[in-house]
């Protein structure tokens, strides 16, 4: 039995890569539905609920839905379902395309959440042991750690702006864009200044001073990881053969 959440991050990455590649490659709705269920089951099994995943997506979910609608309308192929003044608005193929798009995005996002069940430190170590360049992996880790700081700064800046009497929700789009310019410019400059300071601090602590780096912490693929990766590959390939 696989211990929940305790898989090696590399086996999770393998799962995400396999599921996502199939999601992008196949165009069969039933196969996509199967992949989504598989990703959702893995997510629930490894300790993160679907609800939390959806909650984390927040407003992005509306963008995905809007894109799905755009995908479905004004497609000529298929049986017309809605026609307006001689123009085909919606066809059965359009609906299928929208459903496929939704499933694809859901599979990629749901399976990606699986990575969050590993700590950043483990994930980085996993990537390093996959022979990715240390500098690249380190950049990724810094970016991951920097995101909450950036978010916090944005929240405070929006509040500071609102305290100046600017109601971001109530203003017209043109004004809103202007307000965002005032928001984003200092945030960008501040981020650049911070990254420069970080670079200096890293060099002062000997970053890249030696050609080779070793890690005290080493990850080891265990039987349960091989089982998980094997089961993933076998399930997806068998399902692909049966369904399509």
């Amino acid at each position: 039995m696989v211990e929940r959440g305790k898989l090696d991050p590399r086996s999770k990455l393998f799962f995400v890569a396999t599921i996502s590649s199939f999601a992008v490659g196949v165009s069969d709705t039933r196969m996509l539905l199967f992949l989504f269920i598989l990703a959702a089951l893995a997510l629930v099994y490894l300790g993160t609920g679907i609800y939390q995943a959806v909650h984390r997506l927040g407003k992005l979910i509306y963008v995905v839905l809007a894109l799905a609608i755009v995908q479905s309308v004004l497609t000529d192929a298929g049986e017309p379902l809605i026609r307006l003044m001689g123009v085909t608005i919606l066809t059965d193929y359009g609906i299928e395309r929208a459903a496929q798009f939704l499933l694809r995005v859901s599979i990629i996002i749901t399976s990606s959440f699986l990575i969050l069940t590993s700590t950043t430190r483990d994930l980085i170590q996993g990537l390093l042991q996959m022979k990715l360049p240390y500098e690249l992996v380190f950049m990724l880790s810094i970016a991951a750690k920097f995101l909450p700081t950036l978010r916090n700064e944005m929240i405070h800046k929006v509040m500071a702006m609102e305290l100046q009497g600017i109601d971001l929700k109530g203003i017209r789009m043109g004004k809103k864009l202007k307000a965002y310019r005032y928001l984003l410019l200092p945030v960008t400059v501040n981020s650049l200044l911070k990254s420069r300071e970080l670079g200096v601090a890293m060099e002062m602590r000997g970053f890249r001073a030696m050609e080779t780096r070793t890690s005290f912490r080493q990850l080891r693929l265990e039987g349960k990881d091989y089982l998980f990766m094997g089961a993933t590959a076998a399930t997806v390939i068998i399902a692909y053969i049966i369904i399509t």
């Binding site: 405070h156 509040m159 928001l183 200092p186």
Partner: peptide, 9 residues
């Protein structure tokens, strides 16, 4: 604010 950067636009 405690951090003045938040208020600079």
């Amino acid at each position: 604010f405690q951090n003045p950067d938040h208020q600079i636009f």
